[in-house]
C-alpha cells in the first residue's frame, strides 16, 4: 500500500450492519470493514473504524476527516460530519461503477431507488418510508423460518424452477407466509425463488418512480444476495452492477464526501 499524506474515513451505521471505509488522499479505497450493529450503535461504529485502521496500520491522527452516514449517523459523535445515506450510496456507487445512473440500495429495513447524474450527484430518489415491506427484513423472516443464513437463501432460490406467488408484503408476515407456502407442498427452492421475485417486483416499483436509466448499480447488504441479483436481472431484462464492495457503498461515499470537504477547505486557503 502506498503511504499517503492523509486519509479520510466513512462509517455507515445501518439498521443491521455497520460498515467502515478508509480512503487515501488521492481518493483510492484502501480498506473496508463490517460488523453487526446491535443495540450499541456508537460502539459498533467505533469498532469498525478501529478495524479499518488496524488492517492498514494507519494511525488515527492521519485520518483528517471522518463522515458518518446511515440511519444511526447522528450517534457517530466522534465524526466531523453527517451525510444522508442516499447521497453516500450515490457517490459510492459512482466510485465503483462510474457509468452508474440509477442506484438501488437495499438494506435491512430500507430500500431506496436513486437517480444520479454523471458526477454521482443525486437527481431524484424514492424510498419505502411507511413500512419495512420490500426490504431485507422480508428475506430475513423467510430465512429465520427455514433456519438458513441469508447467503444460503439466495443460493437456494437459484435452484427454484417456478417462483411461488407470495401474497404478503408485511415483513412480519414473511415467516407465516413461508410456512404456509411450504405447508401447501411447495419446495423450499420455489418458495425462496418466489420471495426474491416478489421483493424484486416491489423494488422495481420504486425504481420506476425515479426512472430506470442504465447502468443500474445494486448496493446495500442485500446486493450480496445472488438470488436477489438474479430476480432483478430477470425482471428488468438487463444486467446490473454488483460486486463484493457494493455493500460498502454508503461508507465509501461518506469517506469521499470527507475528501471533498477537505479539498474545498484547502482551495479556500490557497485562494487566500
Amino acid at each position: 500500500m502506498r503511504v499517503a499524506g492523509f486519509y479520510v474515513a466513512g462509517v455507515d451505521a445501518g439498521s443491521t450492519y455497520t460498515k467502515a471505509a478508509l480512503v487515501d488522499d488521492e481518493g483510492n479505497l484502501v480498506a473496508t470493514a463490517i460488523l453487526m450493529t446491535g443495540v450499541k450503535i456508537v460502539e459498533a461504529a467505533r469498532k469498525v473504524y478501529a478495524e479499518v485502521l488496524r488492517q492498514t496500520g494507519v494511525t488515527e491522527d492521519r485520518v483528517k476527516f471522518l463522515v458518518g452516514t446511515g440511519y444511526g449517523r447522528y450517534n457517530i459523535t466522534f465524526g466531523h460530519l453527517q451525510v444522508t445515506e442516499i447521497s453516500c450510496h450515490a457517490k459510492g456507487a459512482h466510485y465503483l461503477f462510474p457509468n452508474t445512473r440509477t442506484v438501488l440500495d437495499m438494506g435491512g429495513q430500507d430500500t431506496k431507488a436513486i437517480r444520479i447524474n454523471e458526477r454521482g450527484e443525486v437527481i431524484d430518489f424514492c424510498m419505502n418510508d411507511k413500512c419495512a415491506a420490500g426490504t431485507g427484513r422480508f428475506i430475513e423472516g423467510a430465512a429465520k423460518v427455514l433456519g438458513l443464513s441469508l447467503k444460503e437463501v439466495g443460493e437456494l432460490s437459484l435452484k427454484g424452477k417456478k417462483p411461488v406467488k407470495i401474497s404478503s408484503t408485511c415483513a412480519v408476515f414473511a415467516e407465516t407466509e413461508t410456512m404456509e407456502q411450504l405447508a401447501w407442498g411447495n419446495s423450499v427452492e420455489d418458495v425462496l425463488y418466489g420471495v426474491h421475485v416478489s421483493m424484486a417486483t416491489r423494488s422495481i416499483g420504486l425504481l420506476r418512480r425515479v426512472g430506470i436509466v442504465p447502468e443500474l448499480t445494486f448496493t446495500g447488504g442485500v446486493s450480496q444476495n445472488v438470488g436477489m441479483v438474479k430476480a432483478l436481472e430477470e425482471q428488468l431484462n438487463m444486467k446490473i452492477n454488483t460486486s463484493p464492495l457494493t455493500m460498502y457503498c454508503g461508507a465509501i461515499g461518506a469517506a469521499l464526501f470527507g475528501l471533498e470537504k477537505l479539498r474545498a477547505a484547502q482551495e479556500v486557503k490557497v485562494k487566500r
Binding site: 411507511k130 413500512c131 419495512a132 415491506a133 408485511c170 415483513a171
Partner: peptide, 12 residues
C-alpha cells in the same frame, strides 16, 4: 410508527 419493524427504533 405503524410498521412493526420500524417501531423498533421508536421503542429504543
Amino acid at each position: 410508527t405503524v410498521c412493526s419493524v420500524f417501531a423498533e427504533s421508536e421503542v429504543i
